[in-house]
């Protein structure tokens, strides 16, 4: 679990915006299967070991409140 991101997997709609922006940024292509965020709603949303520490880009692209930036972190 990332210290700077709060997850609410029950709100995840599987729209993949998080995975699409993540993969585009870090692999140079739209490639959800190579994203650093793993979605398994409503059970959990997790991050892979490759996930860049401090990055909260995915939270900016979630309109459903499933991943949000923790305040004060």
């Amino acid at each position: 679990m990332k210290k700077n991101i709060e997850t609410a997997p029950e709100k995840c709609t599987e729209c993949m915006c998080c995975q699409l922006i993540c993969s585009l940024t870090y692999t140079g292509a739209f490639n959800p299967e190579r994203a650093r965020i793993v979605i398994d709603p409503p059970r959990e949303i997790t991050f892979t070991d490759e996930c860049v520490s401090g990055c909260t880009l995915c939270t900016q692209y979630c309109v459903y409140g499933a991943i949000t930036k923790k305040s004060g972190v």
Binding site: E10, T13, E14, C15, M16, P42, Y64
Partner: peptide, 12 residues
């Protein structure tokens, strides 16, 4: 109970 969206959709 829950709602799902299509790829990239901003309005599930």
């Amino acid at each position: 109970v829950e709602i799902k969206a299509c790829t990239g959709c901003l309005g599930a």
